[in-house]
Simulated scan of single mutants.
Amino acid sequence: MHRYFLLLCLSLSTLAATPDPMLVTQAANQRVLVERLARNAAWRWLMPTQAEAAASRQASQQFEHQLATLNQASRNDAALAENYQLLSQQWQDFQPLLKPITKPEQARQMLEASEEMAWIAQKGSQQLEAQYSKAQRPVRLAEDIAALSQRLAKIYLLRSAGLTLPFLAKDLASARNEFDTAMRELHTLPNQSPSLQAQLQLVSTQWLFFQQAIDELAKRNTDPQLQRNVYTTSERIYEVASELAQRYQHAGN
């Protein structure tokens, strides 16, 4: 009887250490949602519209739902539990900062909070990937690309709206480098289906359009059409990168 009890405990512990692969996807998607909320807040500072407000409400609801799932799933892992408890605390502080921005100090607070939350979210997804499901790495990289498109747009739009901080140039360079590194790794993955190859090429093409948009805005920082170009191209690359993540997810199942 004692032997069977031990076998049962081992089986349960094995199940606990092998979560649904979607857990890694949800963890990676938390970074995307944080950056998307921050980008929308930056855009509303420039161009107040109800459409972005509705999109932000939807992103907030998705973030809270996934955060509850991740908190529940990590309760037996001290390091993960601590990470998601911290993310939960940061989320409570972040939400008030998403209200319409009217002055640079509000924008600075929102930017700094989003950077901190995105870092915590990324750390959680990397921990889950390393401990449980390294096969989900392509999914995380595609989600990271979607997040970086939103992060870059966020920073360029905030600068265009009048926010000036000494570290922004360094942050932009770091984000672009991370984007390039993730794309190179995805391009070198073996045994990719024609569907994955086509979607990856579409991401590369949209990245060229996005780069052009942000480079042009950097030259003429207050041009409304160039601001809109950054917003729309960041939206497009977010869409195709998110679709790429879904295709990697399906390919891994």
Results as ranks from 00 to 15, higher is better:
Q26D: 11
A173T: 10
T164I: 09
D77K: 05
K99F: 10
Q192Y: 01
T49C: 10
A27I: 00
L15I: 13
E64M: 13
R75K: 15
D223R: 04
Q246L: 11
G124N: 06
A147D: 06
G162A: 00
G252A: 15
Q131M: 10
W45T: 08
A81H: 11
T49S: 06
M22C: 10
S174H: 13
L148N: 02
A81I: 07
L15E: 08
A53H: 08
V34K: 00
P104Y: 04
E235N: 14
Y231K: 13
L165P: 00
R176L: 08
S13C: 15
W43S: 14
Q212P: 07
S13N: 14
R31W: 00
D144Q: 15
A173H: 08
E239P: 11
P138C: 07
R108Y: 08
V230A: 06
K123I: 13
E216M: 12
L12M: 12
N191L: 08
V24S: 03
Q109H: 15
Q225A: 09
Q72P: 07
N177F: 12
L148M: 04
A78V: 10
V34Y: 02
Q106L: 04
P138G: 05
H2E: 13
S74E: 05
R36T: 13
R228G: 09
L23E: 02
T205E: 12
T181Q: 15
Q127L: 07
Q85D: 08
A28F: 03
M1V: 14
P190I: 01
P166K: 00
R184N: 15
S242P: 08
P96S: 03
L87C: 01
V34G: 00
D223G: 00
L10D: 10
L80D: 04
T14N: 14
T222Q: 00
E185M: 11
D171S: 13
Q50F: 13
A130H: 07
P194M: 03
T14K: 11
L158Y: 01
A113Y: 03
A182G: 00
Q66A: 10
A198I: 08
S242A: 07
Y4K: 15
L158K: 05
D215Y: 09
L80H: 06
V230N: 04
S114T: 01
I120C: 10
P96I: 05
D77L: 06
R151D: 00
E64P: 10
A38P: 02
A169K: 06
E82D: 14
K219W: 09
Q136F: 10
Q201A: 15
N71L: 14
A146M: 04
Q227A: 02
D144H: 13
S204R: 15
Q225T: 11
A107C: 04
L97Q: 03
A218E: 04
T49P: 04
N40P: 07
F63A: 02
P100T: 03
A147S: 06
Q211G: 12
Y231I: 08
L87G: 00
Q199M: 09
L8P: 04
F210E: 01
D171I: 09
L189V: 08
T164P: 02
W45F: 12
L163H: 03
T14L: 15
L86C: 06
F5Y: 15
L217D: 05
A68F: 07
A169D: 09
E178N: 13
R159F: 04
R44V: 10
Q192A: 07
L87Y: 02
L97C: 05
R36G: 11
A173Q: 12
R31Y: 00
Y231W: 11
